[in-house]
Amino acid sequence: MTVQALDQERKIITFVLDQKLYALDVKYVKSIERMLPMTRVPHVPAYIKGVINLRGVIIPIADLRTQLHLDEISYSETTRVIIISTNDKEVGFIVDEAMDIIDIAPQDIESNTSTYNTEQHNFFEGVIKKNDQLMVLLDIEKLLTY
């Protein structure tokens, strides 16, 4: 995924977690939803909050705050679920707030992420510097293996 993107522009979606900007590659994003009633599922990791009924399809929901070892907060009006769809999996990620879709060039991505805390580090693809803003680009494949 990183290799093929080397010389191409990419579109990313940015969102907020704990007042910081994060980003995901837009090509896996199916839709962005408001919070829906959830059904808890037992015997799964703590960051998987349950399943929702998204127009007749059952989709598991993970809280990105919990998965990235940030403090959990209660969901608010701005809380969004980013529905991700890869070829074999569908998951929704809960984020504090969804922001923009922006274009980035390969040189905007800095793959050295050693300044960030190590527990989060596992899910990083790189750090993006764009318009004087720093954001963390998350690796979807890594987020999806639990």
Binding site: T39, V41, H43, I48
Partner: peptide, 27 residues
């Protein structure tokens, strides 16, 4: 019966889920 999907395969004691009349998901 609906599947929980590949992301949540093999949840102990749960074979799938279904959507009830009020839109809620029941395991």
């Amino acid at each position: 019966i609906k599947s929980l999907g590949n992301y949540l395969s093999n949840v102990y004691g749960i074979s799938g889920a279904t959507i009830l009349g009020d839109g809620q998901v029941s395991l």
